Amino acid sequence: MKNLIIAIQIIILVSCTSKSEILTENGKIKDGTFYCDKFDWEIDIPEGYTITSLQEKEDLEELGYDAMKTEVPEGYEVRENRPHLIGFEIDEFNSFSSSLEPFGSTKMSMEEHQKFVSDLLKKTYNELEGVKFEQELSTENIGQRKFYNIKTKLFNQKTDELILTQVILNTKIGADLFSSSINYKSEDVFETLYNNFKKSLN
């Protein structure tokens, strides 16, 4: 199970609600809302969720860096520490995270990028013992932006029990990739996190 948690939280570059103000790397949290200083975006922290620390994200990424850095195409790289915007969670199975970073020098389209990330995730999950998965690709418009989504359901191979569902939503903002990830075990959690994300873009 530990390997599963590590795998679902590896983030790959292919180019506690409080009324006090909390500074983060790429924005600030005030009165339960994150205000991004990289572009015009703000998102509420749902009640009952705690903020994911940057150190926790960096520690998880370091575990997956060596395994993934040789898998990317020319013009892209895997970074050990991505520029995170905000993350919040109930626990490791129910969480939201987002980042903004340069898309890379390659001319890969968002459609090609979506397929590449999908293939890389498939490779990762195929190597997890005792796990099987289903994956679905889609696009949707949220606010003024078109998102390229990857939804993956992970199951216990022996019992068919659903372990986790992961939805990755990617779009371009200028020359940057805006990426958000929702991990959840129940549809209620997904509805809360997904609707909260949509509200932040409308």
Rank of each mutant, 00 (worst) to 15 (best):
M1P: 05
A7K: 02
I8Y: 07
I10R: 10
I11R: 15
I11Y: 04
I12Y: 06
I12N: 07
L13V: 05
L13H: 02
T17W: 04
E21V: 07
E21K: 14
I22A: 03
E25H: 06
N26W: 13
N26M: 03
N26C: 08
I29Q: 10
I29W: 03
I29G: 10
D31M: 09
C36W: 01
D40Y: 11
D40L: 03
D40M: 14
D44K: 12
G48A: 06
Y49L: 06
Y49S: 05
L54T: 09
Q55R: 11
E56P: 01
E56T: 09
E56Q: 11
K57A: 12
E58A: 09
E58P: 01
E58D: 07
L60T: 13
E61D: 12
E61P: 01
E61W: 13
E62M: 10
G64S: 07
D66S: 14
T70W: 08
E74S: 13
E74D: 12
E77K: 12
V78A: 00
R79D: 10
E80C: 12
N81P: 03
H84P: 14
L85P: 01
L85A: 02
I86G: 00
G87P: 04
G87Q: 11
F88N: 04
I90N: 06
D91E: 00
E92F: 15
F93W: 02
F93R: 11
N94I: 14
S97Y: 15
S98C: 11
L100Y: 15
E101S: 13
F103D: 07
F103L: 08
G104A: 02
G104N: 04
G104W: 00
S105C: 02
S105Q: 07
S105K: 09
M108W: 00
M110I: 06
M110F: 05
E111Y: 01
E112Q: 15
Q114M: 02
K115W: 01
S118Y: 04
D119G: 09
L120H: 10
L121M: 11
T124L: 10
E127N: 14
K132G: 08
E134N: 14
E134R: 15
Q135E: 04
Q135K: 14
S138L: 04
Q144R: 15
Q144M: 14
R145H: 09
Y148I: 04
Y148K: 09
N149G: 06
N149V: 05
I150K: 11
K151A: 05
T152F: 01
L154W: 01
T159M: 04
L162W: 08
L162N: 02
L162Q: 03
I163H: 05
Q166E: 06
V167A: 13
I168C: 15
L169G: 04
N170K: 08
T171E: 07
K172I: 15
I173Y: 05
L177M: 13
F178E: 04
S181Y: 08
I182V: 04
N183S: 07
S186D: 06
D188R: 14
D188C: 09
V189Q: 12
V189T: 11
F190C: 04
F190Q: 12
N195Y: 11
F197K: 10
